[in-house]
Design a protein around this nucleic acid. Structure first.
Length: 419
RNA sequence: GGAGAGAUGGCUGAGCGGUUGAAAGCACCGGUCUUGAAAACCGGCAAAGGGGCAACUCUUUCCUGGGUUCGAAUCCCAGUCUCUCCGCCA
């Protein structure tokens, strides 16, 4: 959500930047509505002042006039509320403004690689895709999931199930012990307001799973990422600057409809309706967002370094960034079977965009109140990390070597092989 | 599911239908004192929105939405949430 006052002042700059984000919204209407809105407010406030003066004076001869004023005020209020609602509706659909260093472009073709790390192994056999490896080991079962549940779900068994659990513990340990994040085990349901706060609603309702809790009319949703619930921890709060930065980590299942990706990544665990993800969230003083984004991205890549998986870091272009982001780094891991890099983490700074939606503020050391800065990043997506390990650590006979750092998390297992 | 209690500023917590935007305490900011800190003392300190270059000023806001009244944090109605007790259950 943007600040109307700032927007009004720098409208042309704002418009230019927003247009780099591939949206079709009549931005000029905002100015018109805003002007009308302020005019109504002024009229209303004049009358309210009159009324207040009468009531203060306790002058009985004026009481009739006060009643008339009430009627007029009511009329103005209705008009004003109507316009306000229109204005809010438009505002809530406008994405965040990209930072200057974000490359301009319509789609992922314009993303820029900024770093490449790790050694890509050369195999003396044709590396298999993860689902084939998992299937051969009888530890990854998509057919069974389609019977019990449907498509885009999976059963993991035995050592691969253990690998999943190990990855969660390993990542959480690194982030809590080495990186200063505080571990949270949050609810997996989020209210409508919470979903609005981080920007999933109203625009992306189709991607969300809605839950029917009871007959009441308040709505609940399964979280599509722990970002939603972790970031909203500071909703409607005014924090003290000493409380910041607040760094939180959680491992949770994530639920996504993946509407609009029919036929995409239908094989394997790349794109599922349900997957585990270790999520990092930082709440910071808003001028510290850029530094925090670098820090957070380093925390995420650190995991890949330790797992010795090759990856690259990419800065997303304006058209490819998420709704709430002002700058995003994607981290992509190497998948031998596809012979390319695939997204395994996405770290974004949202500036004060989400904070304004959530009304999350803090007082700085001069006691001035500002909106907080919020950031989120995967550290990392568990399902995709599991895929990367299977594919990068596979041997010619279909076994999976266990990465050194994970062994203590897997009862010192050396390799995963068929039972 | 049954029975109660409550919702007030960053936090805790007073509050009579008419200078109550709201006592007090804590926290926070500034100052005095101190070698420095702590303590003590003095002063400041709600948010959102409108107008103004600014000093400043106006409006709204005491869970939400209605109602009564010239006037509501305070009275009435509806809803939401929280807590306590009983029952049921992982």
């Amino acid at each position: 959500m943007h600040n109307l006052k700032d927007l009004r002042k720098n409208f042309d700059v704002f418009k230019k930047k927003i247009l780099t984000r591939n949206i079709k919204i009549d931005l000029n209407e905002i100015l018109l509505l805003d002007e009308k809105h302020r005019k109504l407010i002024q009229e209303k406030e004049t009358l309210e002042k009159n009324k207040k003066d009468i009531s203060k004076s306790k002058d009985k001869s004026q009481f009739e006039k006060s009643k008339e004023l009430s009627l007029k005020i009511e009329k103005l209020s209705i008009d004003q509320a109507l316009i306000k609602r229109k204005l809010d509706n438009i505002m809530s659909l406008i994405p965040n403004v990209p930072l200057d260093e974000v490359p301009i472009g319509d789609d992922e073709k314009f993303n820029k690689e900024i770093e490449k790390k790790g050694n890509i192994k050369t195999f003396d056999f044709k590396p298999k895709p993860h689902h084939e490896l998992g299937d051969n080991l009888k530890m990854m079962d998509f057919d069974l999931a389609s019977i019990t549940t449907g498509s885009r779900f999976v059963f993991l068994r035995d050592k691969i199930a253990l690998l999943e659990r190990a990855l969660i513990n390993f990542m959480i340990d690194i982030h809590t012990i080495n990186n200063g994040y505080r571990e949270i085990s949050p609810p997996l349901f989020a209210s409508e307001d919470t979903m609005f706060g981080t920007g999933q609603l109203p625009k992306f309702e189709n991607d969300q799973f809605e839950i029917k809790l009871d007959d009441k009319n308040d709505r609940k949703f399964l979280i599509p990422t722990a970002e939603v619930i972790l970031t909203n921890i500071v909703r409607e709060k005014i924090l003290n600057h000493q409380d910041l930065p607040m760094r939180l980590v959680a491992a949770t299942p994530c639920f996504r409809k993946e509407a609009g990706s029919y036929g995409k990544d239908t094989k394997g665990m790349i794109r599922q309706h349900q997957f585990y993800k270790v999520e990092l969230v930082s709440i910071v003083e808003n001028h510290k967002c850029s530094d925090e984004l670098e820090r957070m991205t380093d925390c995420a890549t650190m995991i890949l370094d330790k797992l010795k998986l090759p990856y690259r870091k990419v800065i997303l272009c304006t058209g490819d960034m998420g709704f709430s982001a002002e700058k995003t780094y994607d981290i992509e891991v190497w998948l031998p079977s596809e012979n390319k890099y695939r997204e395994i983490s996405s770290c974004s700074s949202c500036g004060s965009f989400q904070a304004r939606r959530m009304k999350s503020r803090y007082k700085d050391k001069n006691n001035e109140t500002f909106f907080t800065g919020t950031l989120n990043g995967s550290g990392l997506a568990i399902g995709r990390t599991l895929i990367a390990i299977l594919e990068n650590y596979q041997t010619n006979n279909g076994d999976i070597l266990v990465p050194e750092i994970l062994k203590p998390y897997m009862n010192n297992l050396q390799k995963i092989s068929a039972n």
